[in-house]
C-alpha cells in the first residue's frame, strides 16, 4: 500500500520547493525586464542643463558600456542609492545617463546640486513616456547598456547594500 506515502511525498516536495525559492534571494515583486538582449528604445529628451544637447539613443552607442538611471527628486530610495551612483561614476568611470522621471526640472537640478551629479548627461522625462518605453515599474531603476546599444542588465530598485558590489559591478565587468 504505497498510497499512504503520497501525502508525505507531496509535502516534502513542496517544502523543498519553498526552501529553494526562499534561498534564491529573488524578490517576487521584481519582474524580469523584457528589454534584456534587445536594443534600447528610441528616445530624445531635452537636457536638464539648459542649452546642452538633448539626451538621445545615440548617446548609448559609444562602444563601451553605459548606465541609464531613472530617478526623481521626490523618490526617497533614489536618495539612498545616490552614493552608489557617485561611486560608479568616480571609481568605476562608467558613463551614467540620468533620466529625471516625472519631476520638475528645478527640483531635479536642486537634487543634483545637493547630492552631487554623477551623470554625464541628464534628460527630462516629465510625462514619463520614455520610462514607459523602457518598461520602468518604479524609480529608481538602472539599465546597463553595452557599447552597441543593447540592454544587458536591469537593476530593479535602489542600488544599495551589497547590490552594487554583488550584482551591478559583476554585470558591468562582464561587458568590459
Amino acid at each position: 500500500m504505497i498510497n499512504r506515502f503520497i501525502p508525505l511525498i507531496i509535502v516534502l516536495g513542496l517544502f523543498a520547493l519553498f526552501l529553494a525559492r526562499m534561498n534564491s534571494g529573488e524578490n517576487p515583486k521584481e519582474l524580469d525586464s523584457v528589454l534584456i538582449g534587445r536594443a534600447a528604445p528610441q528616445f530624445e529628451l531635452a537636457s536638464l542643463q539648459g542649452g546642452n544637447p538633448p539626451l538621445t539613443t545615440a548617446d548609448l552607442k559609444i562602444g563601451k558600456p553605459v548606465l541609464v538611471n531613472f530617478f526623481a527628486s521626490w523618490c526617497v530610495p533614489c536618495r539612498a542609492e545616490h552614493e552608489s551612483l557617485m561611486v560608479l561614476a568616480g571609481q568605476y568611470r562608467v558613463p551614467i545617463y540620468g533620466i529625471a522621471y516625472k519631476d520638475s526640472p528645478d527640483r531635479s537640478r536642486a537634487f543634483l546640486t545637493e547630492l552631487g551629479n554623477p551623470f554625464s548627461k541628464t534628460g527630462i522625462d516629465q510625462n514619463g513616456r520614455v520610462a514607459i518605453d523602457w518598461g520602468v515599474t518604479g524609480v529608481p531603476e538602472t539599465f546597463l547598456v553595452d557599447g552597441d546599444g543593447i540592454v544587458r542588465y536591469r537593476h530593479w530598485g535602489p542600488i544599495v547594500g551589497d547590490g552594487l558590489r554583488k550584482r551591478l559591478v559583476p554585470e558591468l565587468e562582464k561587458l568590459r
Binding site: 506515502f5 509535502v11 516534502l12 517544502f15
Partner: peptide, 12 residues
C-alpha cells in the same frame, strides 16, 4: 511533515 509521516505509518 511529521503528521503526514505519522499518517503513512498508522493509516493501515
Amino acid at each position: 511533515g511529521g503528521s503526514m509521516a505519522l499518517y503513512a505509518w498508522r493509516a493501515p
